[in-house]
Nucleic acid binder design. Structure first.
Lengths: 239, 239
DNA sequence: CAAAGCAACATCCTATAGGAAATAGGTTCC
DNA sequence: GGAACCTATTTCCTATAGGATGTTGCTTTG
């Protein structure tokens, strides 16, 4: 049963601890980067062959991804990648982000340690040198940096439950953003630095307010995307 | 391969659509009702034999439950039910509930339809006749009714993302409450009715305030539980 | 020409078997 | 008497095979 020597030369990164974990990360990346396009059927067997594993760990990873909201499962019809965000879902996402991330910023300003405040300030400053690169790469780097900044604040807020909720929200955001390159990188950086300054100063109310202003502005920057492409609506259960 | 006639007489309820779904609900109930005690190892094969299915759907259900936070998975050591809430985790839970459910109550007051307002009012009123029953049964019924009320408000708030977050939080709460019967049923009912009245009247601010007052009071009612039993602390990764 | 029915196909879902790792217990050595 | 090492067992993890179901395309009929 020569199943080990075939493991070389696969397109997955070096294995973590369990195969299921690797497969989970691999598929998550495939969905996040839209290599598996939104709203498309996911063939378990084909995916297993592609990753050079048996269908069982693929099935297990898909079950976790469904709980994350990145794929959907129709009972006897297989898995499907979650379709693109509709306008209503996008608005809902930012409404909830406003609520949750306003709170994380305020709490971060109150609870963060000295070392954590420095990390946040550094992260906001590091956002500048993403000007390098071109097109897709540059946009992907910017998106990753933005996510890192927001996740860092959620991490520092000192509430595991709040952090989980925010992280879950962010993975939903990726279902929209990668398709629509935005041009507001400089504005985003200054807004980030304003948030970082308020947190460093320990001013909870100012931090929350700066975060809410940032999210409101970011929401406005993303809006034109819905005019460029036909709105996908919510064609998610065509029965 | 006589695998169908063995399906009769199992302790699972009638099958929904897929076996994995049934198994998921079954295990979820086992964890919620503490038939699988918190912090205990979960043997996949034993569970599969108990439910009279193969390990594969059990494994899939466990993966979903891990995403829900009801079980944990240590890479090469199997699954474990999530341990009891520590004092710090309990405080965190109610902090986040205060934030999220205050928002759901306010939004429910603004967005609910006439029919939905009636359902909420009816649900709050129905909370009275749980005085019947004894001990465990009575407490379980009260807990279920409380969860239904809060979930209903989250449902009506008109934000799918917010509803998911709240629902997720509630499943965490079950990890604490069932072990410590509380005596505040009458107070809970009046508080629920006050919330329902504010929502029915369409007063967002009053509804949010009533919800926050309710949660603050409920938190106080639960607190003595930590004095009755030795605090479990956070013995979750004994290596 | 359109719609309904049928059949073939592809895919998912479940069951079983075997290899690998971690845990637990006993033994031995210090 | 205690700690470290080794061995045996248990358990998890992965792979493969077969049955049931949904889906798709074609044919036939009105």
């Amino acid at each position: 049963m020569a199943q080990h020597e075939a493991r070389e030369g696969r397109l997955r990164p070096a294995r973590r601890l369990t195969l299921s974990e690797d497969v989970y990360e691999s598929i998550k990346t495939l969905v996040m980067d839209h290599i598996l396009p939104p709203g498309e059927r996911v063939n378990i067997d084909a995916l297993a062959r592609e990753l050079d594993v048996s269908p069982t760990p693929v099935r297990e990873a898909l079950a976790r991804l469904e709980a994350d909201g990145l794929v959907r499962k129709r009972p006897l019809s297989g898995y499907t990648t979650t379709p693109l965000l509709s306008r209503a879902e996008f608005d809902d996402l930012f409404d909830v982000r406003l609520l949750l991330e306003g709170a994380t910023a305020g709490r971060a300003a109150a609870h963060a340690s000295t070392e954590e405040r420095q990390r946040i300030t550094a992260e906001a400053a590091a956002s500048i040198d993403v000007e390098a690169g071109d097109g897709y790469r540059r946009h992907a780097a910017f998106t990753a940096l933005d996510a890192t900044f927001h996740d860092l604040i959620a991490e520092v807020a000192g509430s595991p439950l709040l952090r989980d909720s925010v992280t879950r929200l962010h993975s939903h955001l990726h279902l929209h953003r990668l398709y629509f390159p935005v041009t507001g990188a400089p504005a985003t950086n200054t807004e980030h630095q304003r948030i970082a300054a308020a947190i460093a100063a320990g001013d909870s109310e100012a931090a929350a307010e700066a975060m809410r202003a940032h999210l409101t502005a970011a929401r406005e920057r993303h809006l034109p995307a819905f005019d460029q492409l036909p709105d996908p609506g919510t064609p998610r259960d065509p029965v």
